[in-house]
Design a protein around this nucleic acid. Structure first.
Lengths: 169, 169
DNA sequence: TGTATGTATGTAATATCATAACACGTCAAG
DNA sequence: CTTGACGTGTTATGATATTACATACATACA
């Protein structure tokens, strides 16, 4: 495992859209996940680890049943809870994110850097990228506070065209 | 129908949370909806109008099946498409919004004022309020643009505690 | 007035997403 | 060596959403 700044692909903010060594990117995320769980004591069991690997194969969001189908062919259980539980674990640990708009899940590319990103979802190629959401979240919190509402968690997701698909249109 | 500034309840930004004359608030939204559809030529048929009324009864989000159950007892169809079609129409016309986080729908309290609000969802009383999202959306668009992503639609939803429920906690 | 056309509604069937409840196995602490 | 926590497997069911087709209703216009 290399530090993030050692990998041009992994360090880029537009990671998902830019051409990059995805194998390295996935390996890196997996290694970090292992380091993280070792630290916190959370158990990255075979099913959970495999689900993370599956999510890391592409910068896309996968439905729970897509994941489940993969697991089933590999000798794991084939009932929905098997997938949902592993996904829930990964989300709790910050190793994956749920994309509300798609009822689907995507691997976190920056595990450990405690963050609540915005998601950029390309409506053509279905790639999902994480984007920095600090400013947007701050604006939302401020606006909410004006009405006395206290934000605990927020969902920020954008649908649109990624740079690659824009070029082709 | 009165202009928005004539109604203290309807003009307030924290409409949903503040004590207000909700009957007036609902009537106002309905009247605007009628005016709007008359302008655009869209047909606010009995089912669609009734669905809007149902959504306007409270500042909450209702699931499609909740709406459907109401419709069914009133002599309308009782199959899911009846509710989904009416809801889709209302959303298209800007008369209702879909809350992704809840897989549910809520009436728009400012129909006609072309807007894409953020939603503030109270986790205790389940009230849903619309909040100004211009700043948050701008921040998101800017961040997305840095990666070359072009945002077409964005979802901004916050889960937390509304002023009333905060007081009680 | 009759008829064609588009739009809305009704209905059946099915697809997709998600959770509750319980059984069984494993492993570490006491 | 057993108890308790946790993880996994499985059954069953619940919740959300769409496809496809049939029917009715409105509008325009021959």
């Amino acid at each position: 495992m290399s530090a993030p700044q050692d990998c041009p692909g992994c360090a880029a903010p537009d990671l998902a859209f830019a051409a990059h060594d995805h194998a390295h990117c996935a390996q890196d995320a997996l290694a970090r996940a292992e380091a993280l769980t070792a630290t916190t004591g959370a158990r990255l069991t075979p099913v959970r680890r495999r689900v993370l690997e599956i999510l890391l194969e592409e910068h896309k969001a996968l439905g729970a049943y897509d994941v489940l189908a993969r697991l089933a062919t590999e000798g794991f259980g084939n009932q929905p809870p098997v997938a949902y539980r592993a996904l829930e674990f990964l989300v709790e640990q910050g190793l994956a994110h749920r994309i509300q708009r798609l009822n689907a899940f995507t691997a976190c590319v920056h595990p450990g850097e405690d963050h609540a990103p915005a998601f950029l979802i390309c409506r053509t190629c279905h790639t999902v990228a994480e984007a920095e959401a600090t400013a947007a979240r701050a604006a939302l919190d401020t606006e909410a506070a004006r009405t006395g509402f206290q934000v605990e968690r927020s969902t920020i997701e954008a649908l649109g065209l990624c740079p690659n698909c824009r070029g082709q249109a």
